[in-house]
Amino acid sequence: MTAIARKVAAALALPVVLFAVWWLATGSSENFYFPSLRVILSSFGEVWTGDRLVTDVLPSVLRLLCGYLAAVVIAVTAGVVIGSSPRIRAFAEPALEFLRAIPPPVLVPIIMLFAGIGDVMKIVVIVFGCVWPILLNTVEGVRAVDGVLLDTARSYGIGGVARLRHLVLRSASPQIFAGMRQALSLGIILMVISEMFAASNGLGFAIVQFQRSFAIPSMWSGILLLGILGFLLSLVFRLVESRALSWYHGLRRSQRS
């Protein structure tokens, strides 16, 4: 119990210090653009606890989740296909490297042309950005499946769906999760950017609106909310990952000792 308490304390120590510094440094701030933390926090309470939770935060999070999950499904599927065949890999890899090198935000205006400015456009932007790290990591992971394990599976008649489920995907899962972790932070960035371009609701939209209407404390509170959202999402991600990859972390520990 004390061990857990100590862990929580260690994790919270730096954020508490940073908030304290921020609080003290801006305590008597008269600067219009850098209001005191006290003002920001009170506007946080006003702005983000009422309707906006449903009208702005929820749509943003839903778009992010839709885009992210679609990217995971597309990227893992394509990654398994590409990674399983050296021929397809040689054929597809240069094109993938090129597409990956395009910064997804520049595609927002183009995607707007055919997908409009609604939810579809934003989800497409998120998908397009999140797919690459997951795809390339999945390809690597699938390619690196151990030859002895493959022979073992073959000799025991483990093929088809069972081979995919019990061997290929499990073996590649550490790399897949590494890609998914990168994609999650990309997804949050793209969610905000797509909403800043053209939107009628969402976190990015709200923050730009506050800025344009000189509601500076509200704007800051929006940025704070984005930070909290990112933190919570990565917390959930880590929980899922530590469950799915507990074997991998154990294996690594046993190899190190």
């Binding site: 151990d146 002895v148 394990l149 022979d151 073992t152 073959r154 000799s155 025991y156 008649g157 019990h166 061997l167 499990r170 073996s171 899962s173 074997w247 991998y248 294996l251």
Partner: peptide
């Protein structure tokens, strides 16, 4: 012609022949 159903193989590399996630 392929792995027959009535045959089992034990490989030298035990560490790489067991599924570490199972």
């Amino acid at each position: 012609t392929g792995p027959p159903p009535g045959m089992a193989v034990v490989f030298q590399e035990y560490g790489r022949s067991l599924f570490p996630w199972l």
